[in-house]
Design a protein around this nucleic acid. Structure first.
Lengths: 160, 160
DNA sequence: GAACAATAATTGCATTTGCAAATATAGGTC
DNA sequence: GACCTATATTTGCAAATGCAATTATTGTTC
């Protein structure tokens, strides 16, 4: 018998939402939101990102991210500039201010993660991380059947 | 060296967002959103929920959920009624229409989960689920230090 | 090199979200 | 049983979100 509360997406989402919520509250005093932190931490790891890449990296929808980066630029946390050699794209980077801020926040993120995983052997956690990364990749294989299902429905509708 | 992309919340969030996005698209043809599915699946598992309990179960913020349930009632998917014996609370349930709809959608959710986990031995997946459930519980222990950190900041500020 | 297609980012607009305040009801307390 | 407090839900309002359309630039074809 299926139970939502034992399903993988449910368990996943619940932890994700909750950790996000707690972390948001923890960093609110620094004047940044969770999505802002994610952007800064992504840039800290790999700077000079284009908007689209940053969107893929952070799983933030691109138009949302465009505006978010705009706000962060206004606040002096990041730079954004069209490239000389390819004016379609834009390069986003941390400012020194953004860098020093994210370097204050990262230890808090590390602390949160430690608390989350402390009851489990490191091996389990690293396995878990590997599984999560691989599942992410394997989700791509669902794309075709989504299209197909929707196409089928559409066809049925236009016939009706 | 810390890397966002190897952090637990990052890997978690990414899979959660992506699965949600794909599932949303898959069920869009049925005229329901992902949050609506979650509410229906929660009620299918355990009906006659109060709003607050349903919020806790689904990790949907309570005011958002209040409106969502209102919309779902308008669409004939759920019932909502103040209790006779305790008029503060409301009882939310699936209608027959909501029930038959969610029973169409659950197999799709099962299918998605199967695809997600098919590359791993069941033992690993059940371990993973256990870990996720336990992590969720252990997050509660972060609450006090969030309060404390914010209190400390506040005190420092008022002194300045 | 003009016209068209493809890629990248931004913006308009309607919807969704979440905090805080308001409302509704129940449970003490004197 | 009036008054205060606690609990549960809803609503006002401002901010965030995401789709679709638009803008900007590059690449391709003739």
């Amino acid at each position: 018998m299926y139970r939502l509360t034992n399903s993988f997406p449910y368990l996943l989402n619940r932890v994700g939402v909750q950790m996000g919520e707690l972390f948001s509250r923890r960093i609110a005093g620094y004047g940044v939101t969770l999505p802002m932190y994610r952007v800064m931490a992504a840039l800290w790891e790999a700077g000079d990102q284009r908007l689209g890449d940053l969107a893929a990296m952070t799983t933030i929808e691109i138009s949302t991210l465009s505006r978010l980066v705009g706000e962060m630029k206004r606040r002096g946390l990041v730079t954004r500039a069209r490239l000389k050699d390819n004016g379609r794209t834009v390069a986003i980077n941390l400012t020194p201010k953004g860098r020093s801020l994210v370097e204050e926040l990262i230890p808090i993120a590390i602390r949160f993660e430690e608390v989350a995983v402390r009851d489990f052997p490191p091996k389990n956690i690293s396995d878990l991380k590997t599984i999560l990364a691989e599942i992410y990749e394997s989700l791509k294989s669902l794309e075709p059947e989504i299209e197909e299902a929707n196409k089928a429905r559409k066809a049925a509708k236009s016939k009706a």
